[in-house]
């Protein structure tokens, strides 16, 4: 029982951050139809920026986001404006190929700057534990959970009750009609992409403490994010957060209850099954 609770907690904590990662991708897909296969490499970029800031200024990753978020958003805006926007109107597959190319550029750009050795970025709370009955939680995971949900709720409120949020949803639902409202669709797409990348910068800091980082780690995160987004039904806000929890929990249960390899396979197995039998995602036409 204790083991079960431990796995469940662990899965929930990590899953919330997976959900956050996927929200960024889902937003971007919703307004511009772009599936960004360099998503995970942007996370790696965010992590290595934190590492650089730690080495140069001994900043704690949680503090570094003050710098990494605006920088990453700027990079995101430029990438969308100059690389992805020219592809609008081309086939979806061209965008896949382009972002795969971008993934190579980012991954190996990082490799050239930082080298391939696994590195760590310490944080003040890195090794602190929080014990609740029989369940042991690492404080960075708890922080990740709280911040992820707070951000998700913040995003939700933003989408529902601000003009920018409504513009995003309008472009998602009908881009032509949105432009007839006087919404600059291209600008909304650039800003949404930048927002998505900014979210990744925060997620990167949340995932960083205690995680050895490598330039090649991006692809794993891309895959996890894709799993979650698809589970959540691509643009369904609640579904995506739920998808994140499902993937997080299945990963945690898999590694605790099954052998190593089966445990790692479990999320993919669940993904394939859901993809095949519930291609519209986990939720039933809820929010958004």
């Amino acid at each position: 029982m204790a083991e079960f609770l431990q796995a469940l907690t662990q899965g929930l904590l990590i899953g919330s951050t997976y959900g956050l990662l996927a929200l960024g991708m889902g937003l971007v897909y919703g307004v511009s139809g772009v599936v960004n296969f360099a998503h995970g490499d942007f996370i790696a970029l965010g992590m290595f920026m934190c590492l650089a800031l730690y080495s140069a200024l001994s900043l704690d990753p949680y503090v570094s986001i003050i710098i990494t978020v605006p920088v990453m958003m700027g990079i995101g805006a430029l990438v969308y404006r100059y690389l992805l926007r020219p592809m609008v109107g081309y086939k979806f597959l061209m965008i896949v190929q382009l972002t795969l190319g971008l993934s190579l550029v980012l991954q190996n750009g990082i490799l050239m700057v930082f080298g391939g050795q696994p590195a760590r970025t310490p944080s003040a709370v890195e090794s602190k534990l929080w014990i609740l009955g029989e369940v042991v939680m690492r404080v960075p995971h708890v922080i990740a959970f709280v911040v992820s949900f707070a951000l998700a709720i913040g995003l939700y409120v933003m989408l529902r009750s601000t003009d920018f949020g409504r513009s995003i949803r309008a472009v998602h639902q009908n881009a032509h009609a949105a432009s007839l409202m006087g919404i600059d669709v291209g600008r909304v797409q650039v800003l949404t992409f930048a927002l998505g990348i900014g979210i990744l910068a925060i997620a990167a800091a949340l995932l960083l403490p205690g995680t050895p980082i490598q330039p090649t780690m991006g692809l794993r995160y891309t895959v996890i994010t894709l799993l979650v987004v698809v589970l959540g039904g691509m643009t369904n806000f609640v579904g995506i957060m739920l998808g994140g929890l499902v993937i997080g929990i299945s990963e945690a249960f898999g590694t605790i209850y099954l052998s190593d390899i089966l445990g790692m396979l479990l999320p993919y197995g669940i993904f394939v099954l859901i993809m095949l039998f519930r291609p519209q995602g986990l939720t039933w036409g809820a929010a958004r």
Partner: peptide, 27 residues
């Protein structure tokens, strides 16, 4: 210079209120 498009093109998954607010979103 504003048009009411053919086929109406309301935003289906937003409330009437939100649709109206979007109508007046220009500066």
């Amino acid at each position: 210079i504003v048009q009411v498009p053919e086929g109406r093109l309301v935003f289906p998954d937003m409330s009437v209120r939100e649709n109206l607010l979007l109508g007046g979103i220009n500066r």
